[in-house]
């Protein structure tokens, strides 16, 4: 089980943190945001890192999940889990219909199309106020309960979101190391060669688009219940960009890269608070500097450097 050794350590750390630091703000409050962001970054990495298809509109699916839960539970009084499933089904259908025409595009065109999709969905959240509550959003979601236990405290949410995050990381690691994952990498490497190996590239891209959207939508539903509030602001174009940044910052194509990127970018605002008005400026600067000097991303660059040092030491001894 060497394959999952890294994952086991990571899972252990995540699950032990609240036991060791039960009342730490960074663990039980910031931790929740970090877990959601990790899940989203990992799901986006499946599409961007593995299959090489950029998306500047991932927040749209996160938002659709969140709004589905909010609207279906509050306006239609549905059971929260049923609402979540219906939201997921909606996102599966929508992303499937859109996937083929969108993923026929490449490079800047794909960037534009996904960006447009994200913006249209965001505008819908703002404008369709009878349904979505407009810019003010919707509050008062019912409490989610699991096996009869109401999830009503930060610490309970910690374990729920942590489990979902770990599940998504595990899925992502499993996919990387499988026939489906190799087909995605093949599409990334050379679409023509992938086709010549019998891979239906359009289908492969479409499937991972839907899968990644589904992961984001479920995260959205959980987010809505945890916050007890949804508003368009959380699902804007800027959030999509932040998600892309997380993935690229850690290192495209690496699951733990996405984890690290999401972690840094979620913790950064907390750290940058000391800069006050400089926050936006510093954020932009960090983004540029990392992309210019470590284009492979932090995690991948560090991993390669460590591997190089180890191999040098091996030759020396």
């Amino acid at each position: 089980m060497k394959r999952l050794a890294g994952f086991a350590i990571f899972a252990a750390v995540c699950l032990l943190l609240p036991v060791i630091f039960p009342d730490n703000y960074y663990v039980t409050v910031v931790g929740l945001t970090i877990f959601l962001n990790i899940t989203l970054a990992v799901s986006l990495n499946l599409l961007m890192g593995y299959a090489g298809q950029i998306s500047l509109g991932h927040a749209a699916f996160f938002g659709l999940g969140a709004y589905s839960s909010a609207i279906l539970t509050i306006k239609y009084g549905l059971n929260p889990w049923l609402a979540m499933i219906l939201g997921a089904v909606l996102v599966i259908c929508l992303s499937y219909v859109l996937s083929r025409p969108i993923l026929r595009l490449k490079g800047h065109y794909l960037a534009m199309a996904t960006l447009g999709l994200g913006i249209i969905v965001h505008i819908f959240f703002v404008q369709a106020d009878e349904l979505t509550g407009g810019p003010d959003g919707i509050t008062g979601l019912p409490t989610l309960s699991l096996f009869g236990v109401a999830i009503d405290s930060d610490i309970k949410w910690y374990f729920v979101l942590c489990s979902y995050m770990l599940l998504s990381v595990l899925f992502s690691l499993n996919i990387a190391d499988s026939r489906a994952g190799r087909a995605l990498s093949a599409v990334h490497g050379s679409e023509i060669a992938a086709q010549m190996m019998g891979i239906d590239t359009a289908k492969v891209k479409s499937h991972i688009f839907v899968f990644s959207a589904l992961m984001a939508a479920l995260a959205g539903s959980l987010f809505a219940h945890q916050q007890d509030f949804v508003s368009p602001e959380s699902f804007s174009f800027f959030f999509s960009i932040e998600l892309v940044t997380m993935v690229v910052l850690g290192g495209l194509g690496s699951t733990f890269g996405a984890v690290l990127g999401a972690f840094i970018l979620s913790i950064l605002p907390e750290v940058l608070i000391v800069f006050e008005d400089f926050e936006v400026l510093v954020f932009g600067l960090i983004l540029m500097v990392i992309m210019i000097f470590l284009p492979e991303g932090l995690f991948v660059s560090l991993k390669n450097r460590a591997a190089m040092m180890l191999s040098k030491r091996g030759i020396g001894s």
């Binding site: 499993n174 996919i175 499988s178 026939r179 489906a180 990334h188 490497g189 023509i192 899968f211």
Partner: peptide, 30 residues
């Protein structure tokens, strides 16, 4: 048109695509 983002054996394993059948969901669940 080698897949430069993979190792040598992974390149060849892509070649086995047609001789195997695992889909995305089965892969995710391993």
């Amino acid at each position: 048109q080698v897949f430069l983002n993979m190792s040598a054996i992974e390149n060849v394993m892509v070649g086995c695509h047609l001789r195997s059948r695992t889909g995305l969901l089965a892969s995710a669940l391993r």
